[in-house]
Each structure stands twice: as structure tokens, then as C-alpha cells.
Write a protein that binds this DNA or RNA. Structure first.
Length: 297
DNA sequence: CGCAGGCCCTGGTAGC
DNA sequence: TGCTACCAGGGCCTGC
């Protein structure tokens, strides 16, 4: 699942392979891939022919191609989106959604997306920062990222700390994997009240978020399954370094306790039951639900 | 306004 | 073997 380190890995590859090239033609093969482009696929394709890519930029999990017109192609990979730079002779796979051909003889760019949660749109005047994502907060890799401001926002925040980490308008780029990894490093359960964290604990958590994502980037990202690959179709290998995500029942790398998996927002949270104690109030609630009317000890 | 929850989508897999 | 049910989950939308 592409989170910030994976999207940044893709951005670096696109910068190498696409910047400076002129788009010859665009084929939209699935309307859902451009559903956020209100004028439709034909308009999307026609507007891009003849444009030159001047840069590839990113904020959080969004990336965009800056064009010589001052516009931008804004994209989100969703869960399964891939940006592949491949030779034109290579036969298309079953999930090819959008194809970009260039005026040179080089490889083409393919947006491939099995689950179609991802998509592309043309952002008028969006070369520097597309208006469509102006509401997304800075990510921890942004030079202007201000940890103290995020700590202050967390102090005003209602609800659990994990949900706050996943709120892209508070801090961007974090998804389920790195949220769980950073919480483990900080020895915090994700349902701890965000506002109840000390300033020191909140700052430490943000440091762990930055650290784990920087480490993942150095490994080329996390490929938990075959759905995330870089522009050359290669997997990252940070999955070997994950401490909790996907490790249900395996020993905690710190204390040896069996890693637990809990339902969270129609997905899963992974944590260590010993290092990351569940807040007391929720403890009683969950025990009542899952084990009958048993009094929490 | 801020937060919680539902929905979108498909392929792989577990279970019967 | 063949079917069904479930799982992965980020962002957007709605409703309270």
C-alpha cells in the first residue's frame, strides 16, 4: 500500500524517466481512473498532448507532474496504483488504466491500478501546488514541516492518536503501516487520546514517524504484497524491517510478547499487548463486547 | 465545525 | 472442486 515512502520512491523514478519529455498522446482506458477529472477522459487526453513535463512533485501521498503550461497532472495511487515506465512494445497487463506516449523514442508511462482507488486529474494552474490538494497538510519530509504546530494541533484534537495520525489534514503521508510502526516505537496504543499525550510524547511520536518513513525510503519502500512497485516494477524491501504490521502472533522485537491484531476502522491495527497498553476506559469496553460481562482487572 | 462511519473496488484466499 | 465470504484500505462524502 503506497504511503509516503512508496510515493516518494515513485516520484524519484518519475523524475529520472519523465522530466523534460514531451507528451505525444494519452489513452484513457478506464473512466474510473479519471473520475475526478470532471470533463472526462477525452478532455483529459486532449489537454495533455504537446505538453512537456517540467518536474514531478509530491505532498503526502499525492504526486503531480508539473507541465510547461503551468498546469499539472495530479495523481493518487490509492491502494494499488502503479506508475510504470516501460518499453512501448511490452504488452499491456489487465489493469492498465492510462497510457502516456512521448514524442521521443523512449519508454512510455503507464498508470496501472487493480482496485481503482487511485486516479488522475488535470489541475489547471497546479504546477506548484494543485488547488485540489491545498487542504492537505504538510508531510514530515517537507522542509516547511513544523512539528511544534502538529503537536499543538494534537493537543486540541478529540479522539484517538492513531486516527489523528491518519488524518491527512493534520499531517500527511501516513497510512496504516507507518502509523502502527511509529506507535510501536513510541510504545503508545493507537486509541490513546491524542489530546492527553504530553508534549514530549507527541514530539517523540512525530520523530518516530519521520524516522520510520525515512528508513523505509532508503529501502525503496514497503511491498507488503505485489501491489506496490517502483517505476521499474521492482518491490521495496522494508517489509523485512516492519516491527508489528502484519506480524500477528509473532514475538514483539522488544519484549517477546505475541503481536496482536485488532479491528480498527474496518481494517486492522497491529501492536504489542505488553509495550503498548490499551487505555483503561476502552479496555473495559472491549472486554464487555468480546468476552461477555467480565469485569476488567 | 469536528469527528465517526460508510462506501468505493477487485483479486487472492480461507472455509465449507 | 466450486462456490461464498472476507480481507486489504485511502479518500471522499454524509450525517450527527
Amino acid at each position: 500500500m503506497p504511503e509516503l515512502p512508496e510515493v516518494e520512491t515513485v516520484r524519484l523514478g518519475l523524475t529520472e524517466w519523465v522530466v523534460g519529455r514531451k507528451i505525444k498522446s494519452v489513452d484513457v482506458l478506464h473512466p474510473r481512473a479519471v473520475r475526478r477529472h470532471a470533463a472526462g477522459g477525452a478532455d483529459f487526453a486532449a489537454a495533455l498532448a504537446g505538453r512537456t513535463v517540467t518536474a514531478v512533485r509530491r505532498r503526502g501521498k499525492y504526486l503531480w507532474f508539473a507541465l510547461d503550461s503551468g498546469d499539472a497532472i495530479l495523481g493518487h495511487l490509492g491502494m494499488s496504483g502503479q506508475m510504470l515506465v516501460v518499453d512501448r512494445s511490452r504488452p499491456p497487463g489487465p489493469h492498465l488504466r492510462v497510457r502516456f506516449a512521448f514524442t521521443d523514442r523512449g519508454p512510455e508511462l503507464r498508470f496501472v491500478d487493480q482496485r481503482t482507488f487511485g486516479g488522475l486529474l488535470l489541475s489547471p494552474g497546479g504546477a506548484d501546488l494543485p488547488a485540489e490538494i491545498a487542504h492537505i497538510a504538510l508531510d514530515p519530509f517537507d522542509p516547511k514541516f513544523d512539528p511544534a504546530a502538529v503537536v499543538a494541533a494534537l493537543a486540541r484534537r478529540r479522539g484517538g492518536i492513531k486516527r489523528a495520525l491518519l488524518d491527512q489534514t493534520l499531517i500527511s503521508g501516513i497510512g496504516n503501516i507507518y502509523a502502527d510502526e511509529a506507535l510501536w516505537r513510541s510504545r503508545l496504543h493507537g486509541e490513546r487520546d491524542a489530546a492527553a499525550l504530553s508534549r514530549r510524547a507527541a514530539l517523540g511520536l512525530l520523530t518516530n514517524v519521520s524516522d520510520v518513513m525515512a528508513e523505509a525510503l532508503r529501502h525503496g519502500g514497503t511491498s507488503f504484497d505485489a501491489l506496490y512497485v517502483n517505476v521499474n516494477g521492482e518491490s521495496g524491501y522494508f517489509d523485512r524491517s516492519l516491527a508489528v504490521y502484519g506480524r500477528e502472533g509473532e514475538p514483539c522485537l522488544r519484549c517477546g510478547a505475541a503481536i496482536r491484531r485488532e479491528p480498527f476502522m474496518n481494517r486492522s491495527s497491529y501492536s504489542c499487548p505488553r509495550c503498548q497498553r490499551r487505555p483503561r476506559r476502552m479496555q473495559g469496553h472491549l472486554l464487555n463486547v468480546s468476552r461477555g460481562k467480565r469485569v476488567p482487572s
